[in-house]
């Protein structure tokens, strides 16, 4: 049962296409697991439908319109004659063709990567060589390539029963649980739960005793440090010395 959701504001930004890409990625992963938010998205997409329906119609001259239509049909014919063409191929294929748990030799044996939401599964397929870095006792992190620079997207894994050192974040952090569960002073978070931490909030997550915990997290990239990512050990997290 999922108890923590993105709020209506974030869902509306997602539905309207105004939410940044990294946050949209985590919202999308949540939506693939959460029926309640998927139902809410229906309403939010419906608002877009109504706004399109009621947009001030800009009708072209009949000649222009028929030219535009033949141009479109030419493009469609060209795409259909050459289905392997780079333009047509990715569109013709439904977005969710990736079979969860498909050929991934490295992580196939690791149950933590089973049953991921399709969007995370696809991201993982393109980040086949995960480089796990130990951040502190029982906490490992692997950065994910997402093709954008404003946010750092990563997996975090917490060993069973492990308490992560108390830490704060320099930027807003969004975390979603993908496997197992963890808890902090505010509650217990299980698969699908979606958490937003504002900059400066300090917390101390603990994985549950019996299993490992895997999370997807997105942190705002500190502007001054973007060029150094990878050289520094996690500049996004400030772990207090114990």
């Amino acid at each position: 049962m999922i108890h923590h959701h993105p709020d209506n504001n974030m869902l509306l930004e997602y539905a309207s296409g105004s939410l940044n890409r990294a946050h949209s990625l985590v919202v999308s992963a949540h939506l693939q697991l959460c029926n309640a938010c998927a139902a809410q998205l229906k309403l939010l997409n419906g608002i877009g439908g109504v706004l399109l329906d009621t947009a001030p119609s800009k009708t072209d001259e009949p000649r222009q319109q028929s030219q535009a239509f033949s141009r479109l049909m030419d493009r469609i014919s060209a795409a259909e004659e050459a289905p392997r063409d780079s333009e047509a191929a990715p569109v013709a294929e439904p977005a969710s063709t990736s079979v969860p748990g498909a050929a991934r030799p490295r992580s196939a044996s690791d149950p933590i990567f089973n049953h991921l939401p399709p969007v995370v599964d696809k991201l993982l397929q393109h980040n086949d060589k995960l480089k796990w870095q130990r951040l502190s006792k029982g906490l490992k992190e692997a950065l994910l390539k997402t093709g954008q620079q404003h946010h750092q997207v990563s997996f975090h894994r917490i060993a069973p029963g492990n308490k992560v050192a108390e830490h704060g974040h320099r930027g807003k952090e969004i975390t979603m649980v993908l496997y197992g569960s963890f808890s902090d002073a505010d509650g217990v978070y299980t698969k699908g739960d979606f958490l937003v931490r504002e900059p400066g909030e300090i917390h101390r997550p603990t994985a549950t005793q019996d299993e490992e915990c895997l999370c997807l997290s997105v942190v705002e990239a500190p502007v001054a440090l973007t060029g150094l990512v990878g050289k520094l050990i996690n500049p996004f997290l400030s772990i207090k010395p114990q």
Binding site: Y14, G17, R21, S24, L25, S28, L31, Q32, N35, A38, A39, L41, K42, N45, P90, V91, P94, A95, S96, P118, V119, K122, L123, Q125, H126, L144, K145, T146, G147, Q148
Partner: peptide, 22 residues
């Protein structure tokens, strides 16, 4: 001109309405 190739994720993967089962 943001590089899109690195992640392998298309816009349609992130804004994916095909999952709607209701």
């Amino acid at each position: 001109r943001q590089p899109d190739t690195e992640s392998g994720l298309d816009v349609d993967d992130i804004w994916d309405d095909s999952q709607d089962q209701q």
